[in-house]
């Protein structure tokens, strides 16, 4: 079904100079995406603790994927391909922060960071005040979240 559409799809303007320019732009975008991925890998190696590494990880996940998707659309020159690739971007935009949040939260709780690199930690006192590992109403822990919410509401 996809193949049928691709065959039937209207292509962009396909004159010779335009094609060259579009190909060149696509090439630059691919190189940028590859550079971002490499930078993320280097950051993952060189940054000091898990939380800092998490920041390095988010770049290719969002901007890199967006750049590559645009590059594909430019090189194939078809709107339908762009539509087919939109779910890729949407899924990345929705899932990358969630997994980063969950991993970061787990990393913080497991003590997987270097306190010396933190200038300020405004979370620690609040965690201590809450007395448990769970903040009031916070996070994904349904049971404790429910209990806390009911306390807060009444």
């Amino acid at each position: 079904m996809i193949a049928d559409l691709l065959r039937a799809s209207t292509s962009f303007v396909d004159s010779e100079p335009v094609a060259t320019v579009l190909d060149a732009v696509a090439a630059v975008l691919i190189l940028l995406a590859a550079f971002l991925t490499l930078a993320a890998a280097v950051g993952l190696i060189r940054f000091p603790d898990a939380l800092a590494r998490l920041h390095a990880a988010t770049k290719p996940q969002i901007l890199g994927v967006i750049l590559v998707v645009i590059a594909i659309a430019l090189s194939v020159r078809s709107w339908v391909v762009l539509l087919l690739l939109i779910p890729v971007i949407v899924f990345q935009l929705l899932t990358a922060p969630i997994s980063a949040h969950m991993v970061g939260r787990a990393g913080y709780r497991a003590g997987d960071y270097d306190p010396d690199t933190l200038a300020v930690d405004e979370l620690a006192p609040d965690v201590a005040a809450a007395g448990t590992s769970d903040l009031p109403g916070g996070g994904f822990d349904d049971e404790s979240g429910t209990a806390q919410r009911q306390q807060g509401g009444s």
Partner: peptide
């Protein structure tokens, strides 16, 4: 373990980018 998870996550994204870049370079879908 957190480091490993982050790295494998980025590895998967790298795979997405590799697959995509290959498509763009060779002009197929």
């Amino acid at each position: 373990l957190v480091d490993r998870v982050i790295a494998s996550d980025v590895l998967l994204t790298t795979l997405i980018i590799v697959v995509g870049a290959e498509m763009a370079i060779n002009g197929h879908t």
